[in-house]
């Protein structure tokens, strides 16, 4: 698997890696399953005034305060229709919990490194910034997201 360099860090010696799949505005995305702490349904979210627009607000996950990120906004996609409820994919970074609000969460996929390709040159620049690469699944393409880069939200000028 060495030809896929360090971006592909297999979970086991067979070179496969597991991803939690999710859809955002019809597109399939995946994040490494080990980074996911929790998947919960729609939650009551407290808006945070003056926060960057990508931040939907904060929510309470069993006594811990979680910062929720609206993935549609983060990826520059159209807003979710009001009748559609979202799902929270909770991840951790630096001891803090973050929730990625997506349209729906799918199954966990165990994928072979052979299916993985680094970001194609023509990938949308926003996606290019936050994705590690693309997996060629049988029916569709799955964009593999880099959680750290998703959470690296540029502060607005108000800072």
């Amino acid at each position: 698997m060495s030809k896929h360099n360090d971006t592909w860090a297999p979970d086991d010696d067979k070179g496969t890696r597991e991803f939690t799949s999710m859809t955002i505005a019809g597109q399939l995305f995946g994040i490494p399953v080990l980074t996911v702490q929790d998947v919960i349904g729609e939650q009551r979210i407290t808006r945070v005034p003056l926060a960057p627009p990508e931040i939907a607000g904060t929510l309470n996950l069993r006594g811990r305060i979680v910062t929720a990120i609206d993935m549609r906004r983060r990826l520059g996609l159209p807003p979710r229709p009001p009748e559609m409820s979202g799902m929270n994919v909770v991840v951790e970074k630096g001891g803090e919990l973050y929730s990625l609000i997506v349209d729906s969460v799918g199954e966990v996929l165990s994928l072979d490194g052979e299916l993985f390709e680094r970001n194609p040159a023509t990938l949308d620049p926003v996606l290019h910034d936050v994705s590690m690469g693309v997996c060629r699944l049988d029916k569709e393409l799955m964009v593999v997201l880099d959680v750290a880069r998703i959470l690296d939200i540029k502060r607005d000028q108000a800072a």
């Binding site: 009551r44 407290t46 945070v48 005034p49 003056l50 926060a51 960057p52 931040i55 607000g57 904060t58 929510l59 309470n60 006594g63 305060i65 910062t67 630096g94 803090e96 973050y98 959470l151 939200i153 502060r155 108000a158 800072a159």
Partner: peptide, 23 residues
């Protein structure tokens, strides 16, 4: 959260008795 730390209007956040988060 570090992502929100630059907003100088807030000293922190908390969870109220009814379970909601409040700044």
């Amino acid at each position: 959260a570090p992502l929100l730390r630059h907003v100088s209007m807030f000293a922190g956040n908390t969870i109220l008795g009814d379970g909601s988060v409040i700044m």
